[in-house]
Design a protein around this nucleic acid. Structure first.
Lengths: 275, 275
DNA sequence: CAAAATACGTAACATACGGTACAGCGCTCC
DNA sequence: GGAGCGCTGTACCGTATGTTACGTATTTTG
């Protein structure tokens, strides 16, 4: 049963030539607003010519463009009248691979934040925003990208942010630069990496404040950590999900940014100038 | 403060002559759909003549009818994009920094997947699992970690997966290795990077299949992409959120893994042995 | 590798849309 | 009761819009 134009597009996008597919993607990307504008605007947004747009709506089964627009408007009207219908993500029963995966991920996030108090987040953000020391970030085999992501953002708003990459010997030697005013952010989920644990222990001995992102079973590093963020990772997949930790990371980035607003704004402006 | 056209009308309907008032009432009655139709339809519905509609629109402060329609559309678009905003007129009282951020992120994910059909995901997964060619991944300043994350997983279950890192000159030269059987996964959100666009164009010319992860405004690379994944990125923070794209990436990783189950399992076993 | 089929964009076309001038009508206020 | 003002609709105009035909480029197939 196809009830919306969006579904219609999803159903037929596979059979469309490149140009029309771009039209379809553009429409879906900001659905349905672009479809309400003129053919010229639509074609410009999609980067194709007007006739391609018309062929596109024709392939969807409409006689002409106005008829297509009317259909979109009717759909919109129905949607607006019953806000309840906006039950995002149609609980499509047949559901392929995506829905259960997404549902599990959303649940993970809710659970993760449920066990994470505002105060704890504020504490950590405060620690990261405290500019008397340096910030080091490192992750495991699959979580290192999260460390990179966080480092990329933090480095924009403050100095002395370092992502520890490369071979173990490389970052192990950076220990001498670390002291009790510094913060070490570690990402470590199953299967926990010994090398990280060794590193964390040594850093801890030097008085470094450790912020640990781990899963709900807690990496052994937790015993050395000052702050532990335990994210849910279970999803119906062969892999664990780091999405919840990713969102916590983004939240922290946002909080730190807010705290460093004044200084951060100046830094960003300077950076822009340097380009 | 007047923020919507509906309020504007309520504010001025008292000063309007009879005909225009009927126009106003008709518009408010089925707001805002009638305003998106033609002047003729509007006038017929209101039972007045076309010029009366135009005078009505003019009295609201618009230069012409299209400008009025655009304004209505913008309003609608804003309303559609943040379903939460409507119900959150009075946000949770205690509200620290986390909840709104989390809510927005969850909404982003739901919206992102809403516009992403199972079939499209399956298509992309199939392409990534097709082992006749190589897979290259690359990202922008803040999204490159996502490319790394995906590469780290894909590389475990199949060969010929390469993350393009380092200086532009480094990966630009890898173009010679790319052909029409290969897949290039690009992450590019605002502010879009020119270097990536150049790279994508050249890869496209070589017949490489491009899978693009971008935001809802679509990176210019979309014109070269065979598959476009448009994720929502808006959150109450100084930064855009890549969390939705991250979840899509994890979903794809899971789907590809499932498709390569047999081969992948063997590979993983071999890898374990190698340790 | 050749040939056919398909898809795409340019350019010309017709229509219908928004806009405007003008005349008729009703209303109000001397 | 008459004169003035203002609102409304009819009729017409210019134009921007949707539409179509055709030539070229690209891909697919034998």
């Amino acid at each position: 049963m196809i009830s919306s134009i969006a579904e219609l597009i999803a159903d037929r996008i596979g059979t469309m030539p490149a140009g029309e597919r771009r039209a379809a993607q553009t429409l879906v990307a900001s659905y349905p607003m672009i479809g309400l504008k003129t053919v010229a605007e639509f074609s410009a947004a999609a980067g194709v010519s007007s006739p391609t747009i018309l062929r596109f709506v024709s392939r969807l089964g409409f006689q002409n463009y106005p008829e297509f627009q009317s259909s979109l408007q009717d759909e919109l009207a129905a949607q607006l009248q019953s806000p309840a219908t906006r039950t995002l993500i149609a609980p499509s029963p047949g559901g392929g691979t995506a829905p259960p995966m997404l549902e599990a991920t959303l649940d993970n996030m809710r659970e993760t934040f449920k066990h994470l108090s505002d105060r704890q987040l504020a504490d950590i953000a405060g620690r990261l925003a405290d500019r008397r020391g340096k910030t080091f970030l490192i992750g495991g085999r699959f979580t290192d990208p999260l460390a990179r992501y966080m480092a990329a953002h933090l480095a924009v708003i403050q100095s002395d942010v370092f992502h520890l990459a490369g071979q173990e010997s490389m970052w192990r030697d950076r220990l001498i630069d670390m002291g009790k005013r510094d913060v070490l952010v570690i990402f470590d989920i199953r299967r926990y990496q010994e090398s990280l644990a060794r590193f964390a222990e040594k850093a801890h001995q030097r008085g470094v404040q450790i912020v640990l992102f781990t899963d709900q079973w807690l990496s052994p590093i937790a015993r050395f950590a000052r702050h532990v963020i335990a994210g849910r990772t279970a999803v119906p997949s062969a892999w664990d999900s780091s999405a919840a930790l990713f969102v916590v990371a983004e939240t922290l980035i946002g909080a730190v940014t807010r705290q460093l607003e004044a200084e951060g704004a100046r830094r960003i402006r300077e950076m822009e100038d340097l380009r």
